[in-house]
């Protein structure tokens, strides 16, 4: 049948494309086992000529890497949890409830979706410092606990859920908040997975904000530490950089692997398509 033959070709093409797409990723991992000299060689090598664990030992011995790892995790988990909770709350209100100011609230959320981050950066820093949150983990977390995008996503998804559930809940005499928490929230799995992955990814990789807010190394996150140790004023330690980048990407990769099906389902059903 023609279908099988075309599939065979497709696999070949896809495999070639796949190799091209993941090549930089693979090169990053392989590069983390190379020496600085080899990384600067021309033409560049693919497999490490003399594989070394040096970069990793330096990463974990010299630097307080486990501390940064813990900080990154706390921040990313808190930010993700906050977004999941608060954005679904507003999203539900916007999608299902009728209240004065709803339209305005929604327009404001949509408007801020378009504002470039660079606009608010400096005023935000001055603000965070003035309320005494500089150099603290809350200072890293609070400004990111909600996002317009999260609200939009949750609202779109919940709009697509059957309204009958709301009326049924009311008939049963459940309070409005209970209807949200017990009936609708459990149905939001795919959307929460989508929002969760995107938020975690963003928080995990966030660089500039933790850099200026965390003033002591004990508050640094992974990307800040990575930039710190791998780049000098006039030189870059590529091996260390690649080893660090590999360590940073692994948790994200694992989370994506674990949730990818729900992630896609979430996008499929949020109505953002």
């Amino acid at each position: 049948m023609t279908r099988t033959r075309s599939q065979w070709w497709l696999y070949a093409v896809l495999t070639i494309v796949l190799l091209a797409v993941i090549a930089p990723f693979v090169w990053m991992v392989l590069g983390s086992f190379k020496t600085q000299g080899e990384l600067l060689q021309t033409p560049p090598t693919w497999w490490p000529q003399t594989a070394t664990l040096d970069n990793y030992t330096r990463l974990f011995s010299r630097l307080n890497f486990s501390q940064y790892f813990v900080n990154s995790t706390i921040v990313a988990v808190a930010v993700t949890a906050g977004n999941l909770l608060f954005c679904s709350m507003v999203g539900y209100a916007l999608a299902m409830l009728d209240f004065p100011g709803r339209r305005t609230l929604f327009l404001v959320v949509m408007g801020t979706l378009l504002i470039p981050g660079v606009v608010t950066f400096v005023p935000l820093f001055v603000l965070v410092t003035n309320v005494g949150l500089a150099n603290s983990l809350p200072g890293l977390i609070l400004p990111f606990l909600v996002s317009p995008f999260g609200v939009f996503l949750m609202r779109q998804y919940i709009s697509g859920l059957p309204r009958d559930l709301l009326d049924a809940g009311r008939v049963d005499g459940a309070s409005e908040l209970r209807i949200f928490a017990r009936i609708f929230l459990p149905l939001c799995g795919p959307a929460l997975a989508t929002l969760g992955i995107l938020t975690f990814l963003g928080s995990w990789n966030n660089f500039l904000w933790p850099l200026v807010v965390a003033q002591e190394e004990s508050k640094y996150t992974l990307p800040v530490a990575l930039a710190l140790y791998s780049k000098g004023q006039n030189s870059t330690q590529y091996g260390l950089l690649l080893a660090g980048a590999t360590v940073v990407v692994i948790p994200v990769l694992a989370i994506f692997l674990a949730f990818q099906r729900r992630f896609i389902e979430g996008i499929a059903t949020t109505g953002i398509k």
Partner: peptide, 16 residues
């Protein structure tokens, strides 16, 4: 409903 909605929106609005 209005009360419930604004209760739900409150944390977001404050942070926002």
């Amino acid at each position: 409903q209005g009360l419930a909605a604004w209760t739900l929106a409150l944390p977001f609005c404050l942070l926002f």
